[in-house]
Amino acid sequence: MKRPPALVITGPGTNRDPDVAFALETAGADPTIRLASELAADPSPLHHAALVVVAGGFSYGDALGAGRLLALDLSVALGDPLRSAVDRGAPMIGICNGFQVLTRAGLLPGSLGHNAGGGFVCDWVRLDPVSGSRSVWTSGLDAEIHCPIAHGEGRFVHPDPDGLVANGQVALRYASRNPNGSVDDIAGVCDEGGLVLGLMPHPENHVLTRQHPVLDSEAARPHLGLAIFEAGVKHVVAA
């Protein structure tokens, strides 16, 4: 079976692009990493992508607020091709900084503020896939996802979290202690169509069972972050 092409979009300071490329490859996709500035000059990889990822990191060093400057680049230069990718049904995921970018770019609801604890936190969390979510990236998932977080601006805020829940847009909740003060323990949200997912944690860093800090191989397997990428790939392969 042909591997669906996945485009990983980066900006200056994006740093988890190799990690997510490895996750996509393991999940059965064929990833390509491209800078937003390169795509502005030649958007064809975006036209051909079956899956689109905005990777994590510190684009522009979080200057002026995490994700804002890369979101500006995307909106100014790539706003139309990004929307048309979603319109033709390509699942899109923004992880950590990518989540921040997609909220600022208006592709996802809500916003991400400084952690309630005041600083950057790196730790492992357990994520509960929310049943009834319309996200294609968590479709079919029921076991908890275990993976690390690493962010300073991950407090999800939204004026109407109940509305998001009712609309099936809350895809993931923190099952372990809420690490950043996000409203309603929300770790990941999707757009109204369910194709675009944003989440603060890093499922791309739990692709192999040996990456789990506590559980042995057999026990870790059901909780791999890989499952999210596999769900994305499955969606496009089935379509």
Binding site: D19, V121, C122, W124, E204, N205, V207, Q211, P213
Partner: peptide
Amino acid sequence: IIHRYDHEIRGTTLVRPIT
């Protein structure tokens, strides 16, 4: 202190500074 450092990036850290 260690939670303030990203010690997970690259997915390569198998034995971590805190265990």
